[in-house]
């Protein structure tokens, strides 16, 4: 009975917290594609008249791609990650979580703080500079976090929860306001 009870607790928790989608597991391009397809359908039913479904979809894709890039290039045995999509009356919230090497935290933190501290105008300026700069990687433009910050119009939030001496769980959150 324990697992049944746990399942019910999970259901209650998800309902109370307005969690529309929760996924933990191995993320790769195939998983991402099927998840996105599912979420896209869900979003278009929920709120398509205002176009917010498109904005949320944008943020979701970039957030998930941030996970898979980071996980696969830096930490090949830790592709297990998490995606949450929540909806309240005021906004949608996209949260990703993935394992990260503690050694990688300072550089990432610096990058995130830089983006979090910029106004929309400054973000757009940086986006344009990055867009015109020489490509350093054929499958990453270095624009993901900037794009998320610009499209969401809200400050990005993040946290690192230490797991072991070597690794932490990296949480990344974006809110998208629902226009009334």
């Amino acid at each position: 009975m324990t697992q049944v009870s746990t399942a019910f607790e999970v259901y209650k928790f998800m309902s109370e917290k307005n969690i529309l989608v929760a996924f933990t597991g191995y993320f790769d391009h195939l998983v991402t594609t099927s998840l996105l397809k599912n979420i896209k359908n869900k979003l278009s039913v929920i709120q398509s008249a205002t176009g917010i479904d498109k904005k949320v979809y944008n943020v979701l894709v970039e957030s998930i791609e941030n996970i898979s890039k980071y996980a696969s290039s830096r930490n090949p045995h830790q592709n297990i990650a998490m995606l949450l999509l929540c909806k309240s009356d005021a906004h949608f919230t996209v949260i990703t979580g993935n394992h990260i090497l503690n050694n990688d935290i300072p550089a990432l933190k610096e990058k995130l703080d830089k983006v979090a501290g910029l106004s929309t105008t400054e973000l757009k300026k940086l986006y344009r500079e990055q867009m015109l700069s020489k490509r350093t990687h054929e499958n990453s433009a270095g624009l993901g976090i900037l794009d998320i910050a610009i499209k969401s119009g809200n400050q990005i939030k993040y946290d690192f929860k230490q797991l072991t001496d070597q690794t932490s769980f990296y949480l990344f959150q974006t809110e998208i306001n629902i226009q009334k």
Binding site: E65, A141, L143, L146
Partner: peptide, 12 residues
């Protein structure tokens, strides 16, 4: 309908 930021750079 949608393009990610990596594609944006190729469109550029």
């Amino acid at each position: 309908d949608y393009f990610n930021s990596t594609s944006a750079k190729y469109i550029m």
